[in-house]
Simulated assay, not measured.
Amino acid sequence: MSSGLIDVHAHLLPDFYVQQATAAGHAHPDGMGGWPSWSLHAHLDLMDRNGIETAMLSMSSPGVHFGDDRAARLLSRRVNEYTAGLARDYPERFGAFASLPLPDVEGSLEEIAFAFDELDADGVALLTHTHGVYLGDQRLEPVFAELDRRRAVVFLHPTSPVCWKQSALGRPRPMVEYIFDTARTVTDMVMAGVLTRHPNIKVIVPHCGGAVPVLADRINEFMSQFLRSQQPPTPDAVQQLCGLYYDMAGTAFPRQVPALLKLVDPDRLLFGSDYCWTPSPLADAHIAAIDAAEPPAVGTTWRSLTTANAKRLFQSTP
């Protein structure tokens, strides 16, 4: 199998993180049965088997902030140093998205500086919300201003919504709650003007955009009505959504990618495996489905297209 895929949605789970998260009450994270197993060698094996050249490593939900700012700062620093170490030891195989101790703004600004200036991070990973602070929240404005100044890649990742005890109905939250929390925070960013105020950030939305593609016109219509007393936003909601990047992690085919392509051009799509939260057999099957799917243009494959998109994205970042 030809190599070359760049995986923008790949997770690591070092033992020290699992131990601390479990001690904080996350023995069954987001309603899952438990923590998946992860090791460097198992990850490299998955990559080699599926022709993945480089994986951009990030932490998934529940993130690094379990209620105490100081502890979150320490954990984010440890996670980021560990991830940067893998990228340093395997420079052709791994990149790193830094975790931030949000909603602690001061701590997050310190970690942005350390991650980019000392660890050479490739971007940051932000959960859709932390303790109910969604990404359109005015309190996070200094964080987005700094990320915009650095022209940073911002990888979004869903987590359980604040209402999960009522909305999840006892089922694992990654099934549908993740999808709607992604749409919730992206809509919040659009409505709050985060993307228009900070046009230099490069946002990656996971899981084919979650519910965003089928809701885009509805969001646009409500936005025009909700903001009708103000100057109409430029660009409008659909135009803003078209300017984001979207990874193909999860069940991309047969339905999600075709729906996404009704919203964005193919040059906005990126490959994602979601390993290790997606177990190896499912990750293999998802990649096989991508390989079997009809490409969007003659003379391309989904591999060549998403790899070219990823290289263009990261080469444009200082």
Rank of each mutant, 00 (worst) to 15 (best):
M1K: 03
S2F: 01
S2A: 13
S2R: 13
L5S: 07
V8D: 06
A10D: 09
T22L: 05
T22F: 03
H26R: 13
P29Q: 04
G31K: 06
M32K: 14
H41F: 04
H43K: 04
N50F: 01
M59T: 03
S60M: 11
P62C: 08
P62V: 08
G63F: 01
H65W: 09
F66N: 09
R70A: 14
L74E: 15
R77D: 10
R77C: 01
R78A: 15
Y82W: 15
E92M: 03
G95P: 04
A98F: 00
A98N: 00
S99C: 02
L102H: 00
G107Y: 01
E110K: 00
E110N: 09
I112F: 07
A113L: 07
D117R: 11
E118G: 00
D120Y: 02
L127M: 14
L127Y: 07
T128D: 02
H129T: 04
T130C: 11
T130N: 11
G132N: 11
G132Q: 08
D137H: 14
R139V: 14
E141Q: 14
P142G: 11
F144D: 12
A145D: 12
A145Y: 03
L147M: 10
R151I: 01
V154E: 09
L156A: 09
V162I: 13
C163E: 13
K165I: 05
K165A: 14
A168E: 10
L169P: 00
G170V: 04
E177F: 01
E177M: 10
I179R: 08
I179K: 01
D181Y: 02
T185D: 07
V186E: 04
V194D: 10
L195E: 06
R197H: 12
P199F: 07
K202I: 05
K202Y: 07
V203C: 10
H207W: 00
P213T: 09
I219A: 02
L227C: 02
R228K: 13
S229A: 12
Q230I: 00
P233I: 02
P235S: 05
V238C: 06
G243Q: 15
G250D: 05
F253Q: 05
K262N: 14
P266R: 01
L269R: 04
F271M: 09
T278F: 06
P281N: 09
P281Q: 10
P281D: 13
A283K: 11
D291H: 13
A292W: 00
R303E: 03
R303S: 07
A308M: 04
A310V: 10
Q315F: 01
S316N: 08
T317R: 15
T317F: 07
